[in-house]
């Protein structure tokens, strides 16, 4: 899959890119705020979106735009899951800190959802926003 990483912590972004590439995915870009995310979104199927970014808690808003305007399937990655539980813009939430396995499962799940398959929610994504 082609994946956009929205994460303002560059170390985490790099690590995430690394994990995704090792899983055989293509990282189309990495963004640390809303403007950068919209600049880099072209061609992405999925996006991993942090909530608190350099321009504030814009993650949910970015997810909304990625989903409605670009048809991107979003998974939130955040240390504050309570901030996105009301959002229907993402298909799931990964709590920080996360490990490689969690990322792999979340991406597989998001891929299924992106391609229209109804699949069971992986355990670490149990707290899924409404709309699932």
């Amino acid at each position: 899959m082609r994946i956009l990483v929205v994460e303002d912590e560059f170390l985490l972004a790099m690590n995430l890119e690394n994990i995704l590439e090792e899983l055989g995915h293509e990282v189309v870009g990495s963004a640390s705020c809303k403007r950068e995310a919209l600049d880099a979104v072209d061609g992405a199927d999925l996006a991993l979106v942090d909530v608190r970014l350099t321009d504030g808690a814009t993650g949910p808003e970015i997810a909304e735009i990625l989903k409605s305007r670009y048809g991107v399937t979003v998974v939130f990655t955040t240390g504050n899951p309570e901030m996105v539980l009301e959002s229907s813009a993402g298909v799931g939430v990964i709590r920080k800190p996360y490990d490689d396995t969690m990322i792999a499962k979340a991406v597989n799940y998001a891929t299924d959802r992106h391609e229209g398959r109804q699949v069971p929610t992986p355990p670490m994504l149990t707290r899924i926003p409404v709309g699932l």
């Binding site: 912590e9 170390l11 985490l12 690590n15 690394n18 240390g79 920080k96 800190p97 996360y98 490990d99």
Partner: peptide, 12 residues
Amino acid sequence: NTIAMTQAVVSQ
């Protein structure tokens, strides 16, 4: 955040 950063450093 600290744990996530530490994890990234260790992992990398």
